[in-house]
């Protein structure tokens, strides 16, 4: 193939190259169109060509440029909550009450799971899905329950996919969810600090700040995190409308989410949905900094252990036996 020794000979395009320049300009136009089209597609503008109200666009524009929740002032927090409530009304016709409850002073949440008492009823899973507005299309579940063989504590030896009458003789049941580690590998891994541990011990995610790189999901040793691979779908009449910005508000697609110890409930003094739903009372929740709390009683008087303790992640979720 002859090479162009074009050290400055720009005259080629005049007469010889009319056909060539036509082809060139066609290719140029094609590539420009491709670039523009891809830019439009990438921003997702093309799908939502429906008559988007100017108010909705303005709210989304403002939401796009907001700061990380942890760094917001109280006014900014209230402003973004107002915008999110309004957007929920405009987009999905939902009346939600979002709160920005701060952590309660001198509280560090702890959780205990009684593996002698759990009978595998999975009421906790069901309650969590309803309370936290989890995607029904992909059946996202924060909580997993394993049917375990006595003598082995590793969930990999258990069956997390059972569906038969429970409890089965000679099996015990163990549940996992995000353990809200004190030394969490996930918060260390996040490149934008979109996930962090709040002062009351809850590891939270700012869904709007997350870039969706899923590094935290790779770092979590307990399968605690879930990713919104698509847009979450929840039937309108099943949406829990009392929400928290860092908790059970409906997440955008492409963002990480996880158990938040029902931050919308616990910061109002209520028990998480899983604890409240458990029919056998296998779940214990409370304030680790209160020496008189139930969780401290469990830690003091029961034989407790944590999962994968050797990793040094210091989870605030203990298992115990009666």
């Amino acid at each position: 193939m002859k090479s162009d020794n074009s050290s400055g000979k720009s005259g080629c395009s005049c007469s010889i190259g009319t056909a060539r320049s036509d082809r060139r300009s066609f290719l140029k136009g094609l590539s420009i169109a491709a670039a523009a089209g891809s830019a439009a597609l990438a921003t997702g503008c093309v799908p939502s060509v429906e008559a988007a109200a100017p108010e909705k666009m303005k709210l989304r524009w403002q939401e796009f440029f907001k700061d990380n929740y942890r760094l917001m002032t109280q006014e900014e927090k209230e402003a973004t909550i107002a915008r999110l409530e309004r957007l929920a009304k405009l987009q999905d016709d939902l009346d939600i009450q979002m709160s920005s409850d701060p952590p309660i002073d001198r509280v560090l949440y702890g959780y205990a799971f009684n593996i002698s008492r759990c009978e595998g009823f999975m009421e906790c899973v069901s309650a969590c899905v309803r309370e936290n507005n989890l995607d029904r299309k992909t059946n996202t579940q924060y909580i997993r329950i394993f049917e375990m063989e006595p003598g082995k504590l590793d969930p990999s030896t258990g069956d997390g996919r059972y569906y038969h009458k429970v409890p089965v003789e000679n099996k015990f049941y163990m549940g996992t969810q995000c353990f809200h580690c004190e030394n969490a590998p996930c918060t260390k891994a996040c490149p934008t600090k979109a996930t962090w541990m709040e002062p009351d011990g809850i590891v939270v995610v700012d869904y709007d700040w997350c870039i969706g790189c899923r590094y935290c999901q790779a770092a979590c040793p307990y399968y605690g995190r879930r990713f919104n691979w698509g847009k979450p779908e929840i039937p309108k009449d099943e949406v829990t409308t009392r929400q928290h910005y860092l908790g059970n508000r409906i997440r955008p697609k492409g963002k990480m989410e996880k158990c938040t110890f029902c931050i919308q409930r616990t910061r109002a003094g209520r028990l998480p949905a899983c604890v409240e739903a458990c029919p056998t009372g296998s779940r214990v929740f409370g304030n680790l900094l209160d020496p008189e709390s139930e969780i401290r009683f469990v830690l003091k008087h029961k034989k407790v252990f944590r999962m994968k303790e050797e990793l040094g992640t210091e989870p605030k979720f203990w298992y115990f036996i009666d």
Binding site: N114, N287, E294
Partner: peptide, 14 residues
């Protein structure tokens, strides 16, 4: 009595 058996009703606080 200590809280390792049974459950609190609705609230962890109060």
């Amino acid at each position: 009595l200590g809280g390792a058996h049974g459950k609190r009703v609705a609230n962890w606080a109060g």
